[in-house]
Write a protein that binds this DNA or RNA. Structure first.
Length: 298
DNA sequence: CTCGACTCCTGCTGGC
DNA sequence: TGCCAGCAGGAGTCGA
């Protein structure tokens, strides 16, 4: 479930391997993910130098020599894997932590590896996405913000432009739960189910509260908590190539422990926990799980 | 305009 | 122990 912090660390990992490097080979192995791949994508990538990366919400933009940018969304299950050209994929760890495949042979490409690029230096980067909710598109670098996926997107939560005034304005008049409003990428860019739950817990705001009633003093409490939870998660991703491209080839860092997300019935850090307190509650809002502490979130 | 329901997809979990 | 239904969710579409 890559959200802003995961996308940021994946992008930094890709930059470590691709920034300033020339792509010598590219292959697309199926016609589409969520959307069709641009028909000329492989041709456009091959022989081209990568000039740099930036992130917008949950999207990564890889700027290419020649004026185009590759717009990448990891969707639900997308990940980037890096290995040396000619080396087999490292088997994924099974449920018991044991390798689920034999290693050390030249096996087939990793399952669900839909796009592959190779650099002059011998790195082979694969975009793996079993559920195919991800997307890849080409957009002129000068017109990145006009792409239909980016146009109308809300402020970057880690930028100075994301203030309590701005958030209040976006929430005013909205009669939907704050949980749903924060998932709306037009309100703020890059939050998903996990960090919305944790940010609301940190701010002591109930996910069921109407968005309009968060405008004002509660927004002033929420904005710094959104920034903090995202910054802390990015910082946990580390700062060296070793951190970004792991031994198993996974690019980026994926946090697995949260304050309330996926912790139904467990003690939250502000409460005594069961039996004195029922612990973290799970409810369903617009079809998705919300985790929160009914005692401390109002 | 605003909001919620539905949709896409496959891997994992849990209940029998 | 094995099977399989159901759940997971980002974001676009559609209808109320």
């Amino acid at each position: 479930m890559p959200e802003l912090p995961e996308v940021e660390t994946v992008m930094r990992g890709l930059a470590e391997v691709l920034d300033g490097r020339r792509i010598v080979a590219a292959a697309i192995t199926r016609p589409d993910l969520r959307w069709p791949f641009p028909p000329n994508l492989a041709a456009r990538l091959t022989g081209t130098r990568v000039l740099g990366f930036r992130r917008r919400g949950k999207y990564m933009l890889m700027r290419l020599e020649g004026g185009d940018s590759v717009l990448i969304h990891l969707g639900m299950s997308g990940r980037m894997v890096a290995r040396r050209v000619g080396e087999p994929p490292v088997p994924r760890l099974g449920p018991q932590g044991a390798a689920s495949d034999a290693r050390g042979h030249n096996g087939p490409p990793e399952a669900h590896e839909h796009m592959v690029i190779e650099t002059e230096e011998g790195w082979r980067i694969g975009f793996v996405d079993p559920r195919r909710f991800g997307s890849v598109d080409l957009v002129p670098t000068e017109r990145e913000e006009e792409h239909r996926s980016l146009a109308g997107m809300g402020p970057e939560p880690l930028g100075p432009e994301f203030t309590d005034t701005v958030l209040s304005a976006a929430l005013t008049g909205r009669f939907t739960p704050i949980k749903a409003a924060l998932l709306d990428q037009k309100v703020v860019a890059g939050l998903g189910n996990i960090y919305v739950c944790d940010a609301l817990w940190r701010a002591g705001i109930s996910p069921r509260r109407l968005a309009a009633s968060v405008a004002g003093t509660r927004a002033a409490r929420l904005v710094p908590e959104i920034k903090a939870v995202l910054e802390e998660s990015i910082a946990a991703g580390g700062s060296s190539l070793r951190d970004y491209v792991r031994a198993d080839g996974e690019v980026g860092f994926f946090q697995e422990r949260f304050d309330v997300y996926d912790r139904e019935g467990e003690r939250c850090a502000r409460c005594p926990g069961p039996p004195a307190c029922k612990g973290v509650a799970r409810i369903v809002q617009s079809g998705r799980s919300t985790f929160y502490c009914p005692k401390t979130q109002r």
